[in-house]
């Protein structure tokens, strides 16, 4: 019937469009990755990892920026990770159903999606003004604050996946909750928690806006946490917007570096969860 044909046609067109939409999405992913690889690869060499950021017009590398990013990410994780894990533990184990927990969960989700530039402004007012100067530690704190909601969420989700039976067995043997958590639940959810930390690292290592007002940047090698420190995102920001070819090349190579690291981290996180299972394979 005519009606039937129309329905079939609509179906065909609609599903065709959805396939097209997916193709469009994949196209842009491919385009971006292709640009990154083709422009960034040209600058990849040992020099990139051994020389410092150069003045305009000279050649150099990204060593101080890579070091700064690694240091600030690690410290940020050390600040945000434990806080996030403890908070997630509270939500999953102690305050499961209390109204306070619901509020905290809600607030956490809001913080998760909040613009990172706001965090940068906050840490600027809190630390940079008080200390009187920009510093790597302020940058690390900003990154830590961004890592907290991510870690809270993943920790709570992972702890909730541990079978109740294991928790009950431990309690039945007379263990206090803290003992159950540290000796039974944490080890069981180990791979899930590690995944959460990896995802947090992936999230904060690409952040630029919070570092603009906290760690600033540094032309030279510096290990001083109490002073501005070079970091990849801000260096990319500065170099990409400059007219110097060698700076632009470094910006692309740096961008490729960041993206590769984040992709590797994200994929590793997935593999860890899928291979070992969120409960560490203790099935």
């Amino acid at each position: 019937m005519n009606r039937r044909l129309l329905r079939k046609l609509t179906n065909f067109v609609a599903l065709g469009l959805s396939g097209l939409a997916t193709a469009v999405g994949l196209f842009f992913l491919g385009a971006i990755l292709w640009t990154l690889v083709s422009r960034g690869l040209a600058g990849m060499s040992w020099v990139l990892f051994t020389a410092m950021t150069p003045p305009p017009g000279s050649s150099g590398g990204l060593l101080n920026a890579i070091y700064g990013s690694v240091v600030m990410t690690v410290i940020g994780l050390l600040i945000g990770g434990p806080i996030g894990m403890l908070a997630g533990t509270y939500l999953a184990e102690y305050g499961r159903t209390s109204p306070v927990s619901s509020v905290i969960r809600f607030v956490n989700d809001v913080l998760l999606s909040a613009p990172s530039i706001i965090v940068g402004l906050f840490v600027y007012e809190l630390l940079v003004i008080r200390m009187g100067h920009f510093s790597a530690i302020a940058g690390a704190v900003a990154l830590g604050i961004i890592a907290i909601p991510v870690t809270v969420r993943t920790t709570e989700d992972m702890l909730n996946l541990v079978p109740q039976g294991m928790k009950d067995a431990s309690t039945a043997m007379g263990a206090y909750p803290w003992r159950t958590i540290t000796s039974v639940i944490y080890p069981a959810a180990r791979s899930g928690i590690v995944t959460g930390l990896l995802l947090a690292v992936a999230r904060i290592s690409g952040e630029t806006a919070p570092l603009l007002f906290t760690a600033l940047n540094n032309q030279f090698w510096s290990t001083n946490l109490n002073a501005p420190m070079a970091n990849l995102p801000v260096v990319i920001f500065q170099f990409a917007l400059s007219p110097y070819p060698n700076w632009q090349q470094l910006a692309w190579s740096g961008a490729l570096l960041i993206t590769l690291s984040i992709l590797v981290l994200s994929i590793t996180a997935r593999i860890v969860v899928s291979r070992l299972g969120p409960s560490g394979g203790n099935r």
């Binding site: 003045p55 305009p56 540094n218 032309q219 290990t223 501005p228």
Partner: peptide, 27 residues
């Protein structure tokens, strides 16, 4: 410790107008 022991660089900020020459001098 390394962070504390490192000698401080001279810190300055401002105009992009002289930046090409300031950075050459700094180097």
């Amino acid at each position: 410790v390394a962070g504390v022991v490192q000698a401080a660089d001279i810190s300055g900020a401002g105009a992009t107008f002289p930046y090409p020459i300031y950075s050459k001098w700094a180097d």
